[in-house]
C-alpha cells in the first residue's frame, strides 16, 4: 500500500451463482496519474472489474482498495462521487439540458449554483465544446461525438482523482473516434487523473494506455506497457492479439 497506488485489487474473485467465475484470483494495481487500459473480449470480466471499483458489484472473495483504503469500508454513494464515470453510450439523461447533465455530481455534492456555472464554463472548452451554445440544449440535439464529449465533461466535473471509462469511444464512427482520442490524450496531460479505460480495441489500448491489462475468461494474461506487450507477450493469447494488429509497430 504505497501512496502512489491509487487502485489496488488483491486475490480477488467474483463467482456467479452457478459456480463459474467472472474474475478469478486477480491481483492488479493502478498508479497515480496513470491510464490503465483493460482489453478483453466480451465475457472476459473487464466490466465486472470496473464495477468492483465503484462498488456496483462486490467481490466473492479478496479485497479492493481505493486510494489505499478498503472500498468495503467506504460509503458507496460518497465513493462513487469521487470516481468519474463514462459509459459506452454516454448515458446522458435525455430529459436534462447539457448544463444540468454536466453539473450532476457538483449538484449532488451541493455546490452553489454559481460554482456550478463557473465550472461548466471552464470545463466545456477542455472537451472542445462551446458552453454558451450548448448549455440549454438536450442530448438528442447533439451528435454522437458531442454527446461523448459531454459525458467526459460530466465525469470530471467535480474534479475526481480517478475516472473510470467503460468503452467510451466504441460506438463512434472512426473519424470521430480519432478526434476524441486526440482530445483524450490532451486532457490526460493537462489533468493528471488516474484513469481506467476499458476497450475491446487493441489499437485504442495501445494509443491511450500507459499500461495495458489483458483479460481473458476472468484471468489476467498480462499487465504491461505497450512496449512490453509488443516485445515479450506473456501468453500465446497476448501474442495473437498483437499479431492481429501488426500495424501497431510504430
Amino acid at each position: 500500500m504505497t501512496n502512489t497506488c491509487e487502485l489496488e485489487v488483491q486475490h480477488l474473485s467474483v463467482r456467479f451463482p452457478d459456480g463459474t467465475y467472472a474474475l478469478q484470483e486477480i491481483d492488479w494495481e493502478v498508479h497515480q496519474s496513470e491510464t490503465m487500459a483493460i482489453i478483453g473480449e466480451s465475457g472476459s470480466g473487464k466490466t465486472t472489474l470496473l464495477r468492483l471499483l465503484n462498488r456496483l458489484a462486490e467481490p466473492s472473495s479478496g479485497h479492493v482498495f481505493i486510494q489505499g483504503h478498503p472500498a468495503i469500508d467506504q460509503d458507496p454513494i460518497a465513493l462513487r462521487r469521487r470516481l468519474g464515470y463514462v459509459p459506452q453510450d454516454g448515458g446522458l439523461f435525455p430529459h436534462w439540458t447539457i448544463r444540468h447533465n454536466v453539473c450532476l455530481v457538483p449538484q449532488l455534492l451541493e455546490w452553489s449554483t454559481e460554482q456550478q456555472h463557473d465550472r461548466f464554463t471552464t470545463l466545456l472548452p477542455l472537451v472542445n465544446l462551446d458552453p454558451t451554445v450548448i448549455a440549454d440544449r438536450f442530448p438528442i440535439e447533439l451528435s454522437g461525438g458531442q454527446r461523448q464529449r459531454v459525458a467526459i465533461a460530466r465525469a470530471i466535473a467535480a474534479d475526481p482523482p480517478i475516472v473510470l471509462l467503460d468503452e467510451p469511444f466504441s460506438a463512434l464512427d472512426p473519424l470521430t473516434r480519432h478526434e476524441l482520442h486526440e482530445q483524450f490524450l490532451i486532457l490526460k496531460t493537462q489533468l493528471h487523473k488516474t484513469m481506467v479505460l476499458i476497450t475491446h480495441d487493441i489499437t485504442e489500448a495501445f494509443r491511450l494506455g500507459d499500461r495495458i491489462t489483458v483479460l481473458k475468461d476472468g484471468r489476467i494474461h498480462q499487465i504491461g506497457t505497450p512496449q512490453e506487450l509488443l516485445t515479450s507477450p506473456a501468453t500465446p493469447y497476448v501474442a495473437s492479439l498483437i499479431e492481429h494488429h501488426s500495424g501497431l509497430q510504430q
Binding site: 465503484n54 456496483l56 459509459p87 455530481v105 473510470l164
Partner: peptide, 15 residues
Amino acid sequence: AAPSVVETGRALGMT
C-alpha cells in the same frame, strides 16, 4: 425507464 441512464446515475453517485 432508460436502464443504461439509470445505471449511469447510480455509477455517478445518485442515491
